[in-house]
Amino acid sequence: MKYRKLGKSGLKVSEIGLGSWLTYGSATSEEDAKACIVKAYDLGINFFDTSNSYPGAEAVMGGALKEYPRSSYVLATKLFFPQGPGPNDRGLSRKHIMEQCEASLKRLGTDYIDLYQCHRFDNETPIDETLRALDDLQAQGKILYSGVSEWSAAQIAEASGISQRLNLRPLVSNQPIYNMFERYIEKEGVIGQCQQEGLGLVVFSPLAQGVLTGKYKPGQGIPAGTRAANDQTNWVINSYLREDVLNCTAELSELAAELGTTLSQFALAWILRQPAVSSAIIGSSRPAQVEENSKAIDLVLSPETLERTEAILSKISHFAPMR
C-alpha cells in the first residue's frame, strides 16, 4: 500500500480507504463485513470511514478493528443527519456535536476518533459554533482531527478564515463525491480551495456505485446480487444506469483492457492522478473486491491515456450531481 498526507497535516492515510456506506451494518452481513475489513488491514489499508447515519456501521467497523493496535489505523466517522425526532437531534450545533461524539465513541468501542467530519454544511448553525466545538473535542483528546464532507469552496474558505481568526485547530479534510462521471469539485473550485486551505480530499463513490467496475452492460439486464438489484441500495445507483453512461463505461472497459488492467483499477488510478486527493474510499462486500481495488495504486496513467479518457467522457450528456 502507498500512503499520502491528509492535506497539510502530518497524518498519513492509505491511498485506498475502506468505507461502510450502504454496506456494513445493512446490506452486507457482519461476517462478510469483517472479512473485508480484515483483508483491507492485511493489505495495508489504514483508513477506515463510517458515519453515525449508516445504520449499524459504526459498531460493525469498530468491532472488526478492535483486535488490531489502535495506533495502527485511522478511524473516521461523521455527524450531521437526524439521529432522533427532537429539534436538536441533527445538525452541527455544539449540543449535537458533543452528544454525537460520545455516542459514536461508544458504538465504535474506542477512546478517540482520528478524523471527525461534518457530514454536510449546516445553514442553521453559525460556523464558529461548530468549529469551536470541534476544537474543544480535539483539546479533550476525543478527536484528533476534524474535517467536512460535501462543503462548497465558499464554505471551506469561510471556515478556514474563522479558524485562523479565532486561532482554532484547522480542518484537515473534505469528503466529496468524485468519480469519472461526477466531477463538480473540478468545475466549482473545490479542489483548488482545498489545496489553498490545506485540506486533503478523501473522496467517496470513486467507482460510481459499482458502475465503473464494468458489471453493468448497455442493453442488458441488471445482474443478480449487485447493488442495483438490491432494494436497499439501488436508489443511489439508478442515476448512473443511463444508456450514454453505460456505453461510455463499455468504451472505458476496452481502454482498461488495452492497459492490461481492470476498469475498477483504471477508475481508481484516474482518481489518484489528482495530487489533492489523499485517499479514494471504496465500498466492498467481498474481500476479493478489496484486493483487486488495492492494486490501483501501482497504475500510472500516461498523458495520452488521460486524453483518450477525456474524449470518451465527453460523450456523456449533463450529469445531475448526486449530492
Results as ranks from 00 to 15, higher is better:
179 N>S: 05
214 G>D: 09
69 P>Y: 05
61 M>L: 15
69 P>D: 00
24 Y>E: 04
115 L>Y: 14
90 R>W: 08
89 D>V: 11
313 L>R: 06
154 A>H: 13
81 F>G: 02
300 V>Q: 11
182 E>V: 13
260 G>N: 09
302 S>G: 06
206 P>E: 10
101 C>W: 03
188 E>F: 07
268 L>P: 07
29 S>E: 00
163 S>L: 02
104 S>Y: 01
108 L>H: 08
54 Y>D: 08
76 A>H: 02
277 V>D: 09
265 Q>C: 07
56 G>P: 14
7 G>H: 00
37 I>T: 13
113 I>P: 05
199 L>E: 02
49 D>T: 10
204 F>C: 03
285 S>L: 02
124 E>G: 01
18 L>S: 01
191 I>G: 08
40 A>K: 10
232 Q>I: 12
110 T>E: 03
289 Q>L: 03
143 I>S: 06
242 R>M: 01
99 E>S: 11
227 R>G: 00
119 H>D: 11
93 S>N: 10
252 L>I: 12
206 P>M: 08
143 I>K: 04
112 Y>P: 00
203 V>D: 05
123 N>P: 03
59 A>W: 06
107 R>P: 03
311 A>T: 09
34 K>E: 11
173 S>A: 15
307 E>Y: 09
95 K>H: 12
217 K>V: 09
191 I>M: 04
297 I>P: 02
26 S>Y: 08
82 P>V: 13
59 A>K: 15
106 K>D: 14
236 V>P: 00
187 K>G: 00
150 E>D: 14
144 L>F: 08
159 A>R: 01
279 S>R: 08
40 A>H: 12
216 Y>W: 15
282 I>S: 06
130 T>I: 08
21 W>Q: 07
36 C>H: 01
216 Y>A: 09
87 P>H: 07
242 R>C: 02
154 A>V: 12
35 A>R: 14
31 E>C: 00
245 V>Q: 03
1 M>Q: 04
319 F>N: 06
144 L>V: 05
5 K>Y: 10
59 A>S: 13
284 S>N: 13
179 N>Y: 09
197 E>H: 03
22 L>C: 06
277 V>N: 02
204 F>S: 11
173 S>R: 10
98 M>K: 10
75 L>R: 12
109 G>L: 11
131 L>Q: 06
207 L>F: 04
306 L>M: 15
130 T>D: 00
37 I>C: 03
213 T>V: 07
64 A>M: 11
115 L>V: 15
314 S>N: 15
296 A>Y: 00
19 G>A: 14
201 L>V: 09
40 A>I: 06
108 L>S: 09
18 L>I: 12
310 E>W: 02
108 L>D: 14
11 L>A: 04
109 G>V: 05
10 G>E: 09
105 L>W: 13
68 Y>W: 14
19 G>R: 01
289 Q>F: 11
39 K>Y: 04
44 G>W: 01
86 G>H: 01
69 P>G: 03
117 Q>V: 09
147 G>K: 12
35 A>G: 03
210 G>W: 13
234 N>Y: 13
